[in-house]
Write a protein that binds this DNA or RNA. Structure first.
Lengths: 94, 94
DNA sequence: ATATTTTGGTTTATATTATAAACTAGTTTA
DNA sequence: TAAACTAGTTTATAATATAAACCAAAATAT
């Protein structure tokens, strides 16, 4: 009846990150932080978890002299997101 | 951009309970336990939290000699659920 | 030139939440 | 009458989220 919801995606911040990346090709740390209104510490940890799971890639470079962390969603991440949304529909569809 | 998701509803088990009650008028403990595939202990705690928040009512009676715990969703619960779903749409709508 | 603040993060500690295991009280079945 | 089952609750532990503290380099102000 109720399919399990991927616990990695069933988190407000991680879901927001995935939602952003899904429509954006790529996004850097600061941009994601602003859009999701998260603290840097929390975002850092949640990005690591998504990366750890293979749902996003994290690339650390420099823009001029400043560090730049760029995130992208992976195919695996897109698939997981879609499945999550499908499962979630069972819970919220009236 | 991303509205906060009511943390009380952003939990797989509590959301499933609310989803059930929304379409069912009332449901007893054992029925909810079966439908949600949850353990009694976890369900007991999550029902208390929903009740504590005023999202459901819990009525304890007896069916013959056995205890019977009946749950119903409240108006406040329905409203909270609808708002949760609305907010959630920002995250999952493609 | 040097002290102060800002940027772009990470790490560590703590509070919250979820879950499992153990327990209670009474009932039915063997 | 002992064993097992029903219908839960309570307590302990594991997992998660979050905040606070920290770090290094760069930019800005004095």
């Amino acid at each position: 009846m109720f399919k399990d919801l991927d616990p990695l995606l069933h988190s407000q911040l991680r879901l927001a990150v995935m939602s952003l990346l899904l429509s954006l090709e790529k996004a850097d740390f600061t941009f994601i932080k602003e859009k999701t209104q998260s603290t840097a510490g929390n975002l850092s940890i949640q990005l690591d978890k998504l990366s750890e799971a293979g749902y996003i890639t994290i690339e650390k470079t420099f823009k001029g002299k400043k560090p730049l962390t760029t995130c992208r969603i992976t195919k695996k991440g897109i698939k997981a997101f879609e499945e999550y949304v499908n499962n979630l529909k069972q819970y919220i569809q009236r």
